[in-house]
Design a protein around this nucleic acid. Structure first.
Lengths: 153, 153
DNA sequence: TATTGTTATACTCTATAACTATA
DNA sequence: TATAGTTATAGAGTATAACAATA
């Protein structure tokens, strides 16, 4: 047993491309992204809308501009994500009384509940994705990844 | 000195999203991808066309189907990448005499030269990207990443 | 004059299906 | 009947510029 799940194993893995860190990073991300997307689909969320919802539900009270910069999305894309989330009653735009140009994004109770369900779903698949590493390895990997991702900037 | 290069440091990094491995993976990949894309642009290449050129130049003699599966691109996307590379004289489609349906992709001498220049350019920026890790850390990271990327499958 | 959020538009990327020629 | 490559097309994602309200 064990051979039943064997995959095709392309000979192209033996090339320099197959061990290029940038290529591996892209591949690992594609797998992670696909798993997260699939787990969120039943909830009517995509990775982007879930990210926005999660930041709102974290009580960070982000402005649209902050969301745009942190998620590296164009401000106009934030608009459409928020339109969708607000239309479902999961998020509200609150005008900032100190600067009436800016909106602060807050999650509703329904939004928090939806976010909790979504988080549970993505954590399940991410755990499965990281199951190829033991706990120590996963911790090491994430610590190095955090620096590579430029966390904090 | 040192403060001149200080970036904005979003407060959103303090949320759970900011330490989510999947988010960090996406961010690290986006940075790597943007750097590679920028370094390849002067050569008229994108990451996808460079990947195909590199696999051809590695003498792996991939079929279009193999390229499609390994790079996780639709067969029709391989067609347009190859049309572009072939039009520039960097790659040739060679019909396989044993099965006349399949084309094997090989790099021309000009293609190998272009590939060497491209490889040098991307390696420079990738080195800079990985410079936040020392050699041991980079090696550890890549080894773990390889498993996470499902290398070999 | 600069900035926040918004709208509109065009471009790229991706996914899908149908077609041909071979097997 | 199935597979490799090709073509065509529609949808999603992305980038850009212009605009109104506010600072």
């Amino acid at each position: 047993m064990g051979e039943t799940t064997q995959t095709t194993r392309s000979p192209l893995w033996a090339t320099t491309v197959g061990s290029d860190p940038a290529f591996l990073l892209a591949r690992a991300n594609a797998l992670s992204l696909a798993a997260a997307t699939a787990s969120l689909a039943p909830l009517g969320l995509k990775v982007r809308s879930y990210s926005v919802l999660a930041l709102a539900a974290a009580d960070a009270r982000p402005t649209q501009r902050e969301l745009s910069e942190f998620l590296r999305l164009d401000p106009s894309q934030i608009v459409s994500v928020l339109d969708d989330l607000e239309h479902r009653g999961w998020v509200r735009r609150e005008p900032d009384p100190r600067d009436r140009r800016v909106n602060v994004v807050v999650a509703t109770d329904a939004g928090r509940a939806a976010c909790a369900r979504a988080r549970s779903a993505v954590e399940d698949v991410q755990r499965a994705h990281f199951a190829v590493l033991d706990d120590d390895e996963a911790e090491t990997f994430t610590a190095l990844l955090r620096r590579l991702a430029g966390a904090g900037e």
